[in-house]
C-alpha cells in the first residue's frame, strides 16, 4: 500500500482502507485515521446535499505534495488520502485520511497535518444545497488557515 491518493465519485469502505493500510506490515504499531462527512447543518442552515468540485490534475498533484511533505516531517510507514467529488447527501463520507507509523505521536500529528493542509491547499470546492432549495458556495474558513499556518 505505502503512500497513495485517490479522487473519485465512488464511496469508500473504512474497513477496507484500514486493511489495505496495514496489509503485510507488522512494523506499524500505530494507525490513525480520520473520516470527514457531510453534516446536516452549517452556519445554522439546514443542508440537504452537497456538490463537490475539483481541478483534475492539480488536485491529485497537491495531494501527492502534501503526502510527500508529511513523509519528511514524521516517520511514516504508510498513508492514504481519498477524497470524493460530485453529488453527496447529508451523512455521506467525503474524505478519508489514514496514517501508519511505529509511533502513535507521529501518526496522530501526520493525520492532523494532512487534513489541515488538504483543507487549505487542495483544490476542492463545496456547494451546499439547502433544505429550502437554495444553493450556496461554502466560504473558506479563517480558522482552517490559522491551523495550517501553525505547521509552517
Amino acid at each position: 500500500m505505502s503512500f497513495s491518493i485517490g479522487v473519485q465519485t465512488r464511496d469508500f469502505d473504512v474497513g477496507r482502507e484500514y486493511a489495505e493500510l496495514i496489509a503485510g506490515d507488522t512494523a506499524a504499531g500505530a494507525v490513525v485515521f480520520f473520516v470527514g462527512r457531510v453534516r446536516d447543518m452549517n452556519h445554522a442552515r439546514d443542508v440537504k446535499s452537497m456538490s463537490l468540485e475539483y481541478y483534475p490534475g492539480m488536485t491529485e498533484n497537491i495531494l501527492r505534495n502534501i503526502l510527500d511533505e508529511a513523509k519528511t516531517r514524521w516517520e511514516l510507514i504508510a498513508a492514504r488520502i481519498f477524497h470524493r467529488v460530485g453529488e453527496l447527501s447529508v451523512g455521506d463520507q467525503i474524505v478519508f485520511v489514514g496514517v501508519t507509523s511505529a509511533h502513535r505521536e507521529h501518526a496522530f500529528q501526520a493525520a492532523e497535518f494532512l487534513m489541515d493542509f488538504l483543507k487549505t491547499r487542495a483544490p476542492f470546492w463545496k456547494k451546499e444545497m439547502g433544505v429550502d432549495g437554495a444553493e450556496r458556495w461554502i466560504e473558506a474558513n479563517a480558522n482552517d488557515q490559522q491551523r495550517a499556518l501553525g505547521w509552517e
Binding site: G36, L52, Y54, Y55, G57, M58, N61, H83, I94, V95, M115, L118, K119, T120, R121, A122, P123, F124, W125, K126, W137, I138, E139, A140, N141, D144
Partner: peptide
C-alpha cells in the same frame, strides 16, 4: 495556478501554458 502549480502575480507565462483562477479552497 500555472500548469497545476500555485503561482504569484509575477510568474511568467508562455504559449501552451494553462492558467486557472479560482476562489479559496473548501475541501475536506
Amino acid at each position: 495556478a500555472v500548469n497545476h502549480e500555485y503561482a504569484k502575480a509575477d510568474v511568467a507565462i508562455k504559449s501552451g501554458d494553462e492558467v486557472a483562477f479560482f476562489p479559496p479552497v473548501t475541501g475536506g
